[in-house]
Amino acid sequence: MSIESVVFAILAGVALAGGIVTVFARDVTRMVIGLAAFLLSIAGFFVYWKASFLGVVQLFVYVGGVLVLFVFAIMLVHRSTEGSPYLETRHDIASITVAGGLFIMVVTALKDFVHDPVAGAMVTGTDEVAAVLLGPMLTHFEMVGVMLLAVLVAVVIIVGGEER
């Protein structure tokens, strides 16, 4: 067993543990910590494949931005509603059938086509990413920028418009 497969197994274990804690935790704080572990391990996967730029973006945007957003939303929401948050589950059997069925379906359909990338498979520098972002994908890049501005305005209107 090579060192690369050990690293892959550790990353996969952390990601799975984080995802399971996110979905099954009864406590909101534990849910956020599970989400943090999951997002960090995804960034770890990107660095493991040497997609370093993507790993850094994942760290900045997700762990630095979205996670803080979640914490803020939990602070705002669960202060204005009385009592502790209800996180318990329902419809267990049907949901596990749907989720497990989808898993089996996709894995059996794609198992011959998806191969494992080796560690450090992507040796792209930021210059190559920039050449793609400002070259063939320039339209996408600009549209994402416009969409982010629209999202900013929309969030201000949605959250701020209620109070008078």
């Binding site: 929401v77 209800y86 996180l87 989720a99 898993f103 998806v114």
Partner: peptide
């Protein structure tokens, strides 16, 4: 194959959470 199994396990866990969770957050 390992990658597919890990990613699809995570996706299924997330789907299960979407279907069963009671809180919007």
């Amino acid at each position: 194959m390992n990658l597919l199994v890990v990613a699809m396990l995570l996706f299924s866990v997330g789907l299960y959470g979407v279907l069963t969770r009671r809180d919007l957050v």
